[in-house]
Design a protein around this nucleic acid. Structure first.
Lengths: 205, 205
DNA sequence: CGATTACTTGAATATCCTCAAGGAGAGTGG
DNA sequence: CCACTCTCCTTGAGGATATTCAAGTAATCG
């Protein structure tokens, strides 16, 4: 999918500080984005502060590719974050000159769909232990350092991704630690070392 | 989207009896489908019988459009159901001769994505009352007869769509009935008359 | 009409949430 | 460098919501 951004001649960059909004739900979808460094969350809100995070995006990931007039999620920087961005209409021009790019967009859209679909099962039918285990396995796969996961997001972000209370996430982490399935690196709650990936996979179903 | 199936010269039909599997999760995605009559559910299963339904498909709806080698859901007929089906490779041929069809596929994929994304919020962050209210509003929009909803699916199907126990769904229905927001037509639990759509919309957030 | 499946309702229980308090880490300014 | 503050995280206690188990009723299918 990096190819999608490779097809642009010139790329604009933008930097967002921690917590900054990149675009809002319902905003016109004028750009598509790729994370260069940092991390991004996409989320939907209910009237009374309840929040559901749809996905976390890490370096290399593309987001904001909606193919409709408006964004369906709000996107915010989790940490200080740099992105590449391209005008939506430039993408349309690229497609016009090379229709095969449409296949890449379709493939990326299907990647998103696949992720969201498996998240449905997690949200609807898995318990807190399974949810957190699945989340850790997902982050582990994305980690550069084997079995060391640096979490850019807060416990609240994780909770809102998994449909749990932040206290529940914290308790499950404590539980996994007491079971020697993970430990916190030097007591830093954002840096997790997976001690028993097999056990974690079993817990995640 | 009906246009997608209109682009085929000849269409095959198939009929499935209630509960029959149309394709299984992991099966090679050889066909795409359109409901002619009846209703279809797509679902994922966990090892211990837990089930999450991703979507219900009613006449006119297209399903099985995965753009990958294998199906990501199992599809089953809810009632006696007739579908049109087209070979995946025929679709590829159509795309080859008319690349603009790819845009239609992309649009349909995005429709699916939009539906699933809003379902994430429902599953992760809404309570039983909000979930059932949202479900009824969704079905109401699809109903031909204003404010009369014929539900082809069981309470268990609804529960597995909303991430609830079937008893909870039944209780919320009873609650909505006692509040005069709906009634059952002639005490038939599958035929719901919406008495107060405004109240229902308020409950759904 | 009988058998099976679906639905409802009640009671008890479990899971997760809310509320609350305290502690640890990061950043700021004296 | 050390208080100070703020945010984040943890942990406990109590409570709410939804689930499980159970029984009975209603509807559907052959």
């Amino acid at each position: 999918m990096q190819r999608l951004f490779a097809s642009f001649d010139q790329l604009a960059s933008a930097k967002y500080s921690s917590g900054a909004e990149i675009f809002g739900e319902g905003d016109p979808a004028e750009h598509i984005y790729q994370v260069v460094s940092g991390a991004v969350r996409t989320q939907k809100l209910l009237s009374d502060d309840r929040r559901q995070i749809g996905a976390f995006y890490l370096p290399g990931d593309i987001f904001g590719l909606e193919d409709v007039a408006t964004h369906r999620f709000t996107a915010e920087a989790i940490t200080s974050t740099t992105v590449h961005l391209a005008k939506r209409e430039c993408l349309d021009d690229v497609v016009k000159s090379d229709p095969s790019v449409l296949r890449i967009i379709l493939a990326e859209t299907n990647r998103n769909l696949m992720h969201v679909e498996s998240h449905l099962l997690l949200l609807g039918r898995q318990n807190s232990l399974e949810k957190v285990a699945a989340f850790l396995l997902e982050m582990r796969l994305r980690s550069t350092e084997a079995d060391v996961i640096h979490l850019p997001m807060t416990r609240r972000d994780i909770a809102d991704y998994l449909g749990l209370a932040l206290e529940t996430v914290s308790r499950v982490f404590a539980d996994l630690r007491s079971k020697k399935i993970l430990r916190f690196d030097a007591n830093r709650s954002r840096k997790v070392v997976v001690l028993d990936a097999k056990a974690l996979a079993d817990l995640a179903e």
